[in-house]
Structure formats: structure tokens, C-alpha cells
Amino acid sequence: MNQMLEIRWHGRAGQGVVTAGELLGEAAMETGKYFQAFPEYGAERMGAPIKAYTRISDKPIEIHSPILEPDMVIVVNPNLIGVVDLTEGLKPDGIIIINTSQTPQEIRKRLDFKGGQVWCVDASKIALEEIKRDIPSTMMLAVVSKATGIVDLDTIIHLTKERLGGKLRPEVVEANVRALKRAYEECVQG
């Protein structure tokens, strides 16, 4: 990678969006890259729309400002469509990764996005089935891995185990790992 990858996350406070952004950056760091992960601090209340940003680069990152023209937009909560301008500034050849039960074609139509790639994954469904809670954010990382190869799935799984291992019961950690693998397998591009 010769240039910086800039990612904007959309979700709702309490969904683990910020953590997922940090986790992605950490995964990149594991492979020797530089990263920044930061949320747009607002009135943090459960459910309020929030944005977070992740930058990944081979070189030290000096800029300190929100990302205006992202290479990738990750939408953790599909009910933000129509509430927030999700494609604002997204490069024409950019990538959208969205947690939805809809198809990439349906999402393209709803977002009026013709270029780049759209990746869909029903992360909420997977989360509810595996983890029994609607916490889909980290599953988006598996899709980032598949879409870009910028981080590999094993690194994400390794970091997830490390992060959750100290706090959660082993079976819950395993459920999270299963969810990651399913997201990697079940996501579709279109």
C-alpha cells in the first residue's frame, strides 16, 4: 500500500463502533503499519448516530482532522440510511460495507451509489444467532479483510481473543470468533 487508506464508520452509540475502528487500526499495526482511530465526539447517548474514523498507512500519519473523502464507508446500522448522509465525500471508486439483510443491488439503489464496491453482510443476524446480542461492529472487520486484504482474518481473530479473553467467558469469546468467520464467509459483493 503506497497511500493512506481512510475509513469512515457510521453507527449508533453503544454498538461498539469506536472499538471496532480501534481494533482495525490495531490489526494493521500488528502488520507493521501506522494507524489512527478516533471517534467524532458528540453527545454520546445510547442509540445516537455517531461517526468514527480509521486511517491506515505505511508511513507515519501526521494529519489530525476528520476524514472528508473516505476510501471506505462502513455502516454498522442499516437504519441510518436516510438519517445520515452515508456516502458524503466517498470517493467514486470507494467501498461501502454495510450491515444489512438487503442485497448490494438494493443498497446501491437506496444510497444512489454507482461506483466502487458495495459489500453487504447481515451482521446483526449473525450477532443475534451467535453472540445473542445485536453487537455487529467487529464483524465488519472480517468484511474489511475480505474486501481489501489490508488485514488478514487471523490477525482480527487473534486480537478479538486478546481483547475479549480477559473479560468474557471462553464460550462467549468463541461465539465472537464464530461470528467473525461467518461474516467473512457470508458477506457478498455487488
Binding site: 449508533r12 442509540g47 448516530p49 446500522n77
Partner: peptide, 8 residues
Amino acid sequence: ITGTWRTL
């Protein structure tokens, strides 16, 4: 309109 924050 805070109703859009709802997931459940």
C-alpha cells in the same frame, strides 16, 4: 427526533 436511535 430521537426515535431513529432505536434498535429495539
